[in-house]
Write a protein that binds this DNA or RNA. Sequence first.
DNA 1: AGATCAAACTGGACAATGTCAACATCGCGC
DNA 2: GCGCGATGTTGACATTGTCCAGTTTGATCT
Lengths: 206, 206
Amino acid sequence: MTPDRYHHGDLPNALRHAAADVITEDGLGRFSLREVARRAGVSHTAPAHHFGDVRGLLTSLAVEGFDHLYDASSAAVAGESDPAERLATMGEAYVAIATDHPAHCQVMFRTDVVDPDDPALREAGMRAHGVLRDTVRDLVEAEGLHVDIDVAAELCWATMQGLVVLEPKLALVDALHGMESPPTRVRVRRLTRLMLDGIRHADDRP
Amino acid sequence: MTPDRYHHGDLPNALRHAAADVITEDGLGRFSLREVARRAGVSHTAPAHHFGDVRGLLTSLAVEGFDHLYDASSAAVAGESDPAERLATMGEAYVAIATDHPAHCQVMFRTDVVDPDDPALREAGMRAHGVLRDTVRDLVEAEGLHVDIDVAAELCWATMQGLVVLEPKLALVDALHGMESPPTRVRVRRLTRLMLDGIRHADDRP
DNA sequence: AGATCAAACTGGACAATGTCAACATCGCGC
DNA sequence: GCGCGATGTTGACATTGTCCAGTTTGATCT
């Protein structure tokens, strides 16, 4: 890519990309702004001109992550017509995002390394959440259920997010129980099924 | 507590305590080993003699967190006889732990700042998980359900963990929708109800 | 076209951090 | 008593994030 010019051309993107690589390889704990700059081939102060400080860069990365999530969710929904199946595919997409873009996902839900008041971040998050909410609403209306849409969406989101966070622990538990861990896709399917059963039977309680 | 002696007496605990304070106040992103040592009133290299490096200290904190979780879960279970109610109370305890000991919880599930192979950490984690698994098993047996116990436990754990992680985002979503956020306890109850419905109706599928 | 000027980037400085090595002090067992 | 390991300290070093003053670049205006 157009080597050693003084002006990089698209440094912000290059920096985000490098940052994601660093986080993926070394973890957020060992994250270093200078290392990012080094990988992008610029001086150690160049990032400041685009993102202010390290928090700015990570916030920008989080925004990109929510955009990815929005795109993946939308695509998943578009590919299915049955509302329940839509929800399941969205769940798979959610977890796929987490494994395909681990760095973004680590940042997206870490309020301490990000500026939670950033307007772009808020907006990107809301857009992504909107897809989930709409899908849940479609399901509830199509099947005539009597659940609060927001509560049901909360369940879906929390479960998938929990699955993402707990994956390593779950694998460990399986290992120590002498069982081999199923692929993540299977976990998603199993949990989605249970969740759906819960959402569907929420109205007929004792 | 017994001021300025050369030997502190119980420095490991003091360091863990200070570390938890630092994380709670400044977040894991701004965590500093030297600041911890400063608060404990010892030199900046004292922690190394007990924990090796910063990762060792945080790992120790994670172990303590899982012990707290085990204690709280056990207490919650002991106070209830109905299996379903046990599960609900455990959920509340789980989230309460997260709000009462935020620093511990941040560390417990961050594989990058902790040594995941630490035997003490593994064992503490398994002990805590055992309480959940037992409770779910009791429920399944008492009500004669046909769910895989591990899958059901996975759902419970993932949902509660997701709730903990997403709390800030959920509050934000509520705010931007013009609704006021319910207390966390209410969230826990709502989700537990839905989960329970799912677990109970898992067998009768189309 | 040539001058101008803000945006993009560099390099050096500074305080703060994690870890290492060498040294000091306590207290327990012989 | 007295040694010796566990516990703490001081000093050093490379690395980090951010500030500041300068350089280079390319677009805009006349």
